[in-house]
């Protein structure tokens, strides 16, 4: 017997709703699981004290500092390089063989698994260039990893700036570079920043790359050439080696909160950009 279309429509609608609800439930569950288990152990002391007894006691300050420094190095390199790449692709060239090749490279780089970046960073920065396990090695490897994200978002943001603005600026006597800096970048900025923020998020989440290139020293780093661990690495070691469940939960809670803030910021900025564009 054939089921009437109105019934299948109802069944389909309910199942699709359930599918989506379960995806969102997974998100809520993951975040809730970590926050419920961890927030109660997060104290001011936990955030500001050194790591003691391999993480059984004390806080996570060195991991926080390590995270910040490594993100700083990574973004300090990837952001200028990525934005420059995006400017080239969006403003300085026409689609052709060259851009196709560059785009292919960017897409491939975006697909390379983090563990491969780890191997690459280990051989090139740690061993060959002699930086050792250090913040600089970690930062450079992370920079390579987040580059595609920054390029893609920045290029998209620039392409979203109305074509007219460029014509107006050029007709008023702007050079190509002035067109970019005065008629394109100011209006693409929220989008460009969104890409940078997403890159920061990716760097903070990453574990595999950092373990192989920055090591996992528990001491407070004194220079960029010191080994250091990020919060993700610290959490991984605590959890995997069963050092301290409470501290693992607490670190995860700090990590999740940071990621939430970063992603929500990125999203609201992108949203504002879209709204602004619709109004214009």
């Amino acid at each position: 017997m054939r089921i009437p279309p109105s019934i299948t429509q109802k069944i389909a609608k309910i199942s699709l709703t359930l599918a989506c609800a379960s995806a969102v439930a997974a998100l809520v569950f993951v975040i809730g699981f970590v926050l419920v288990g961890g927030l109660k152990h997060v104290t001011w002391a936990f955030l500001t004290e050194p790591i003691l007894d391999m993480g059984r006691a004390g806080g996570i300050l060195p991991a926080i500092v390590g995270t910040i420094l490594m993100v700083f190095v990574a973004i300090g390199i990837a952001a200028p390089l990525g934005i420059a790449s995006a400017i080239y692709l969006a403003e300085y060239t026409q689609e052709g063989k060259v851009t196709q090749t560059i785009r292919f490279g960017i897409n491939c780089l975006a697909g390379v698994p983090s563990i491969i970046f780890g191997l690459f960073g280990f051989i090139l920065f740690v061993v060959m260039l002699g930086f050792g396990w250090s913040i600089i090695s970690g930062g450079l490897s992370l920079a390579a990893m987040v580059l595609p994200t920054i390029i893609r978002t920045a290029e998209e943001a620039m392409r979203a700036v109305p074509r007219n603005y460029r014509d107006v600026a050029a007709s008023l006597g702007a050079t190509r570079w002035q067109v970019v800096t005065r008629a394109v970048l100011p209006y693409a900025l929220p989008g460009v920043l969104t890409g940078v923020i997403l890159g920061i998020g990716r760097s903070i989440e990453e574990t595999a790359v950092v373990i192989f290139t920055a090591g996992s020293a528990v001491q407070m780093p004194r220079s960029l050439f010191d080994s250091a661990r990020t919060m993700s690495v610290h959490f991984y070691i605590l959890a995997r080696e069963g050092i301290s469940n409470d501290n693992a939960y607490a670190t995860a809670a700090v990590l999740i909160c940071t990621i939430l803030v970063i992603n929500i910021t990125a999203y609201t900025m992108m949203h504002r950009l879209m709204r602004g564009r619709r109004a214009a």
Partner: peptide, 16 residues
């Protein structure tokens, strides 16, 4: 050249 020859487009395009 473009400063010597100004241009006004079909649609008004004020920069934001």
């Amino acid at each position: 050249l473009r400063r010597r020859i100004g241009m006004v487009y079909a649609m008004p395009i004020p920069l934001p």
